[in-house]
Design a binder for these strands. Structure first.
Lengths: 352, 352
DNA sequence: CTGTTAGCGCCTTCAG
DNA sequence: CTGAAGGCGCTAACAG
């Protein structure tokens, strides 16, 4: 049909005006006399001009009006993972307010990840994942665009938004200690980016690289120490933070720590998987086993029994991350508070 | 710090090569002798060159490598609505395979919607919503980019992906009729874009504008007619398809149709809200009331009792929509099949 | 292999 | 209010 897209210059020539005037007709109509404007609009219509091409404008203006969100998983992760979903809702609301768009960028494929980040048309990045965070942060930084790192320490001069992981973990453990528990088990997030899962020994524990995981372990340890419990005596199982990985980890943990009366899970996804595994084994929660999660995703309030957990302001995180970028990317480090939410999965131990 | 971004030309000059060669160093390194390449890369580093700017490349090449998804709600809708979440997972998987990105575009704000669509940097659009679909389709069409409409009839020469709404609805009604039900009520999606909800009379029913809603009503009617039931005798309540709106609609429907033994809900979200309202009123499902949904979102299999529904291939829809755009936007109209999924919310009527 | 050149489509001075 | 001209940053085509 259309051999070649008609462009602004074509319209200008056909209408007998200069290109500058034609440009004004579309972008700043108030600067053009009504009759000229009408004539230009009419010729544009006849020629089938589709309006100013954003690409040309972009090159000139520089502002894309979109935020890129980088994760190290598939794009499907954005919609599957409850935590990320909440985060994106917060981010999306910040973008909505400012009329900005959101671009989803996956860095799952290591071969193409760099290219994706290098070529993404965005005004700034949000790196929202821990796995492989360093590499992504590095790529984003290289673009020279503002970016904010969530839940990881970006080092150098980049913004970050984190929560009080250590304090939250301590609160979780203290809650269980106050209920009278003394024999614990920990269902942990990944400690470092090597794909290993399963039982964690001391050497591995202290080798933790992911800041969030490390800090939560430290927080549990703080509480244990105050109660005279050696964290080296508590079973720790490391698991991937998706339903399948968590289910596997839950099974391994229940096998490894048969005498534990309480489990500290580092995410609600993990805790919910553990709840399912406990039910499968006929272990009554909270009567025979207390379980506490972390995050307070919406699913936590809907589980059965309803999950006791540490709430972090997930949506608020997203909002702030978006606002930080949209505001121009001034470097800031924010630490958001956490809060203990007691529901139905924790109680005093059966044989206290 | 950096007064002005350093660009390719600067690097080229500083390294004493032509701009073309410098370009090759970054985009097609194999064309450049190793020693020259090293020299250029070194100067680039010293100058703090951040790599080729995607904007310049974009203008030249024209391809953005991203798909825009337009909805008429907030961006938060993408992550909140179960149906859309599933759709996006399918779309995302198609994009992942081809290394394309996804841009989320909201047209909730009528004032800025046009601008958003006109300036979005994408290779094509997917319009995935019924509300205000026409206007969005029009905007997208104007851009002259490939686009595919989901669940709405775009008219003219644009692709569409739809499901057999009428057939699915008929199957739902026939299932209930086969169980022995004769007194029905319908919890309907919106009929047209005027914000009205509540009881639907005949005049309003036949005024349905949204193709999906209209066809589902027709499908129910087909089955009713065959059983000798006049659809004008069945209570129909129109409700917004979000948890709050559906809850309201569910309450109105149960008030209006106290003698109904079965409810046909046009979405699972609506059906699940109805389940909740029935429980609140002490109405046992399926003993006192049968409920059937539409869509088969993941939540349908997790409700209690588990929801009988009409399954449509939501993810497949997303996949195909994405594939259609990525393949270049050849005009096609696809009609996907639906399927009855019998679970626990339908049974023979109590007093048959 | 490397250098030169000509735009991609638009917007924004700067004169008139 | 309008016209002319330059350049945003890059790459492809072609000539050496």
């Amino acid at each position: 049909m259309s051999a070649k897209a008609v462009k602004l210059a074509d319209v200008a020539k056909a209408a007998g005006v200069s290109q500058g005037t034609a440009s004004n007709v579309f972008s700043r109509p108030e600067l053009v006399r009504a009759e000229v404007r009408a004539r230009v609009e009419e010729t544009a219509r006849q020629l089938g001009y589709r309006g100013p091409d954003p690409r040309g404008r972009l090159l000139r203006a520089g502002k894309v009006n979109a935020i890129g969100v980088v994760v190290s998983d598939d794009l499907t992760y954005f919609f599957n993972d409850p935590f990320n979903r909440e985060f994106m809702i917060g981010l999306a609301s910040a973008c909505d307010e400012r009329g900005a768009g959101v671009s989803l960028i996956s860095a799952a494929n290591r071969a193409t990840a760099a290219w994706s980040v290098e070529t993404a048309l965005v005004d700034g990045f949000i790196v929202q994942c821990m796995e492989d965070g360093d590499r992504l942060v590095e790529l984003a930084r290289k673009r020279g665009l503002p970016f904010v790192a969530c839940d990881i320490d970006p080092g150098g001069e980049a913004s970050s938004i984190r929560i009080d992981d250590r304090g939250g973990a301590r609160m979780a453990a203290e809650h269980l200690l106050a209920l009278g528990h003394r024999r614990f088990a920990i269902l942990s997030l990944e400690l470092r980016n090597d794909g290993r899962v399963g039982l964690v020994d001391r050497a591995r524990r202290v080798s933790a690289e992911y800041a969030g995981t490390r800090d939560r372990l430290l927080g549990y340890g703080d509480a244990f120490a105050k109660a005279g419990i050696d964290i080296d005596t508590v079973a720790i199982v490391e698991a991937f933070n998706d339903p399948a990985g968590a289910a596997e980890g839950a099974a391994a943990l229940l096998d490894a720590a048969r005498d534990a009366t309480a489990v500290l899970a580092m995410s609600d996804v993990a805790a919910i998987a553990l709840l399912a595994e406990a039910k499968r084994r006929g272990i009554a929660v909270p009567q025979q086993l207390s379980v506490i999660g972390f995050d307070d995703v919406p699913e936590a309030a809907a589980s059965s029994p309803r999950l006791t957990t540490i709430r972090q302001p997930i949506r608020e995180k997203g909002r702030r991350a978006g606002a930080l970028i949209l505001a121009g990317g001034e470097t800031r480090h924010e630490l958001l508070p956490v809060q203990l939410i007691v529901r139905g999965t924790t109680a005093a131990p059966f044989a206290a």
